[in-house]
Design a protein around this nucleic acid. Structure first.
Length: 193
DNA sequence: CATGGGATTGACT
DNA sequence: GTCAATCCCATGC
C-alpha cells in the first residue's frame, strides 16, 4: 500500500477531457484509526475492503469530494487518497469548474479541489480505475521516478504520527503545508549561517 | 430516530 | 492565525 502511494506519483488521472499528473498522495489502512475502514466492514467501507484498482469516493465535511484508489487484495482495507494534481489537459474546463481562478497551481492543489476541477462525482464510488469514468494511467516518461518527499498526513487527528503522505519534491501543485524538502532546508540553513 | 464527528476549503482578522 | 459551511454515515437510545 505504501509502495502504491509512492508509485501513484507521476501517474495520470483522466476524467472526460480533463487530465492531471498525481503529485501528492496519502496512504490509509484499516489497521489504523485515521482510516474509514478502521470501524470494519460497513456499507460505507465496503469498497475499501473490496478488490484493488477501484475508486473509493466519499464526501468530507459535508462539502468536498475525495478520490481514493483502493489497493491490497479483497478483504484487506487499504486505500490511497489522491491529494493533488499537476493540471495537464482541459485546464480551461478546470478553471470554469473551480470558479475562474487565475492561477493554474490553485486548480488541483488539494484533495477537494482536484475532484471539483475534474468533475469527479460521488457516483464514481466503486468504479474501476482501469476502465471506468475516472481512470488512472501509467506515468509519462518524464514523470517516471520523481524525487519523493514523505511526511505526516494532513488534517487528521488519529494516528497523525505515521509518515504516510508522499509528494513530488518541488512541485508547485502540492497542497499546504508542504512536506519539508531536505535539499532546500540545507540550502536555507547554509544561507542563514 | 437523533446525534456527533470528520482524510477540507475559502473568507476573514 | 481563526471560523463557518454542510452532509454522509456509524452509533446509541
Amino acid at each position: 500500500m505504501l509502495a502504491v502511494a509512492r508509485e501513484l506519483l507521476g501517474c495520470r488521472v483522466v476524467h472526460g477531457r480533463t487530465e492531471g499528473v498525481i503529485v501528492e498522495t496519502e496512504a490509509y489502512h484499516h489497521s489504523e484509526p485515521a482510516c474509514h475502514a478502521f470501524v470494519g466492514l460497513t456499507p460505507r467501507t465496503k469498497v475499501i475492503f473490496g478488490p484493488p484498482g477501484r475508486a473509493y469516493v466519499y464526501r468530507s465535511y459535508g462539502i468536498h469530494v475525495m478520490l481514493n484508489a483502493v489497493c491490497e487484495p479483497q478483504g484487506e482495507g487499504a486505500a490511497v487518497l489522491i491529494r493533488a494534481l499537476a493540471p495537464l489537459r482541459g485546464v480551461e474546463m478546470m478553471r470554469e469548474r473551480r470558479g475562474g481562478l487565475a492561477r493554474e497551481q490553485d486548480l488541483c492543489s488539494g484533495p477537494g479541489k482536484l475532484t471539483q476541477a475534474l468533475g469527479v462525482e460521488l457516483e464514481d464510488n466503486g468504479s474501476d480505475l482501469a476502465a471506468g469514468v475516472v481512470r488512472v494511467l501509467a506515468p509519462a516518461p518524464e514523470w517516471r521516478e520523481p524525487r519523493v518527499l514523505a511526511g505526516p498526513r494532513v488534517g487528521i487527528t488519529q494516528a497523525a504520527e505515521l509518515p504516510w503522505r508522499f509528494a513530488v519534491a518541488g512541485d508547485p501543485n502540492v497542497s499546504r503545508p508542504r512536506p519539508p524538502d531536505p535539499l532546500r532546508a540545507s540550502r536555507r540553513s547554509r544561507a542563514r549561517a
